[in-house]
């Protein structure tokens, strides 16, 4: 991954705020993200399922994917793509950990608060 521009990284939470293999919602401007603690990594995607806008942060995690809690569409958290022949895609956001804090790299166009 090319080095992101320093100013686009945002500190969003402590690592400990998300239980293992669960997700949590994060509101950022007019965006809603879902952050997941997968043990070795943390991943972030848009929170709303492409099928019927279910909150992915509340889904059951399976490996690097999550099942939407409303109708079980499975989303790959690394690519944002629906799996198993489902349709749709969510945006993904790079995440990194520094000093126990989670940082997310928002695209430049994203307005701050």
């Amino acid at each position: 991954m090319p080095d992101p521009k320093p100013e686009s990284w945002q500190a969003v939470a402590d690592c400990g705020s998300i239980p293992l293999r669960e997700g949590r919602r994060l509101k950022y401007g007019d965006k809603e993200l879902a952050l997941f603690n997968l043990g070795e990594t943390y991943l972030a995607v848009d929170n709303r399922c492409p099928h019927r806008q279910g909150p992915l942060a509340d889904g059951i995690v399976a490996g690097n994917s999550v099942f939407c809690p409303l109708h079980n569409l499975r989303i790959d958290l690394q690519t944002g793509c629906a799996m198993n022949g489902g349709e749709g895609k969510v945006d993904c956001y790079p995440v990194k950990i520094v000093d126990g804090k989670l940082y997310i790299n928002f695209p430049k166009s994203t307005p701050g608060r």
Binding site: E7, Q10, V12, S17, Y103
Partner: peptide, 24 residues
């Protein structure tokens, strides 16, 4: 069961902390 069982994430209120580049 977890301090965050019912909570969503909230951005730190200290704006500089969240805008600033981490000292990586």
């Amino acid at each position: 069961v977890h301090p965050m069982q019912f909570n969503e994430l909230v951005l730190p209120t200290d704006r500089s902390a969240l805008m600033g580049a981490p000292n990586a």
